[in-house]
Simulated assay, not measured.
Amino acid sequence: MGKIYSSVLLTAVAALAALPGATLAKTSNLSLPGIKLFSQQRVIYRCAGDVRLPVRYLNTDAGALAYLPAGGKRLLFVSVVAASGVKYVAGNYVWWSKGREGFLADKTQGEDAEPILRDCKQIENW
């Protein structure tokens, strides 16, 4: 998936999520007008410092999405091509998961900066 395509897809998903009637509530109901939801999984990770991170994975006809907190609010991340694991982006944030582990980074802190949340390990589904 190219950089331009990813940017367009992310913009489209964000615009759809902002429409009236679009919800990403904690209930099992999900409405993203114009996007078909195939499946979803809710996971809780325990990260370094005993931080709990709830992540909701969504498999849609628009691609794989992840809904999780970053920067003081919940954001909708879209998957992009990665060499290993699954890389999700939302603005300057990156959630990268592989198997039952992951980390959250803020790209405005520089490419070599430590992740915001590191050593995240899946502990349960919710």
Rank of each mutant, 00 (worst) to 15 (best):
Y88M: 05
K87N: 12
A113K: 04
V86S: 12
V94A: 11
S79R: 14
L76F: 11
A82E: 09
E114A: 14
T108G: 01
L75Y: 09
D112P: 00
V80R: 15
S84F: 00
Y88N: 06
V80N: 13
E111W: 02
V94M: 10
C120T: 08
V80H: 11
Y93E: 02
G91D: 14
W96M: 05
S79V: 01
A105Q: 07
D119C: 05
K98E: 12
E101T: 14
D112G: 00
W96K: 12
A82D: 12
D119T: 06
Q109T: 03
C120L: 07
E111K: 13
Y93F: 15
Y93A: 02
A82F: 02
F77M: 07
Y88T: 03
V80E: 15
D119E: 14
S79T: 12
G99S: 11
V81F: 10
G110V: 08
K87E: 08
W96V: 00
V94W: 02
A105F: 01
D112T: 11
A83Q: 11
V80C: 09
S97F: 08
G99F: 07
L76R: 02
V86T: 15
V89P: 04
A90D: 07
A113H: 02
Q109A: 13
V81Y: 07
S79A: 15
D119N: 15
G102C: 04
V80T: 15
D112I: 00
A83N: 13
E111P: 05
Y88H: 14
I116Q: 11
T108H: 09
G91C: 06
V81K: 12
S79F: 01
